[in-house]
Simulated assay, not measured.
Amino acid sequence: MADNSVLTVSIVTPDGKVYECETATLVVVRTMSGQLGIMPNHIPVIASLEVDEAKVTHDGKEDEIAVNGGFVEFSDNNLTIIADSAERQGDIDVDRASKAQHRAEEKIREAREKHDDQEVLRSQVALRRAVNRINVAKH
Results as ranks from 00 to 15, higher is better:
Ile134Ser: 08
Ala130Tyr: 03
Ile108His: 02
Ala83Pro: 09
Asp59Gly: 10
Asp52Gln: 01
Ala83Phe: 04
Ala100Asp: 14
Phe74Tyr: 15
His115Lys: 15
Val136Pro: 02
Val125Asp: 12
Val67Thr: 04
Arg88Ala: 08
Glu113Val: 09
Lys107Leu: 09
Arg109Pro: 01
Val45Thr: 14
Leu79Gln: 05
Ser85Pro: 09
Gly69Leu: 03
Asp59Val: 04
Glu119Arg: 15
Ser48Asn: 11
Arg128His: 12
Leu79Lys: 11
Gln101Tyr: 09
Ala111Ser: 11
Arg88Cys: 13
Ala47Arg: 07
Ile134Asn: 13
Pro44Tyr: 05
Leu121Asn: 12
Glu50Arg: 14
Ala83Cys: 04
Ala47Gln: 07
Asn132Gln: 04
Gly69Cys: 02
Glu119Tyr: 02
Glu87Asp: 11
Gln118Asn: 12
Ala86Asn: 08
Asn132Glu: 06
Leu79Ile: 05
Arg88Gly: 10
Asn68Asp: 11
Val67Asp: 00
Asp95Gly: 11
Ser48Trp: 10
Ala130Leu: 00
Ser48Leu: 15
Ile81Leu: 09
His102Met: 14
Pro44Phe: 03
Gly70His: 10
Ala111Glu: 06
Ala54Pro: 01
Ser85Asn: 11
Ile65Cys: 10
Asp59Ala: 13
Gln101Pro: 01
Asp59Lys: 10
Ala86Met: 05
Ser85Ala: 12
Ala97Lys: 11
Ala47Val: 02
Thr57Ala: 12
Ala100Pro: 06
Asp117Lys: 13
Glu64Met: 04
Arg112Cys: 06
Lys107Asp: 14
Val120Asp: 08
Thr57Phe: 13
Ala100Val: 04
Ser75Cys: 07
Ala130Met: 05
Glu110Gly: 02
Phe71Asn: 10
Gly60Ile: 03
Ile46Gly: 05
Glu73Gln: 15
Asp116Thr: 12
Glu53Ile: 00
Glu53Gln: 13
Val120Pro: 06
Asn77Cys: 03
Glu105Pro: 01
Ser123His: 03
Ile92Thr: 08
Val125Arg: 14
Asp93Pro: 06
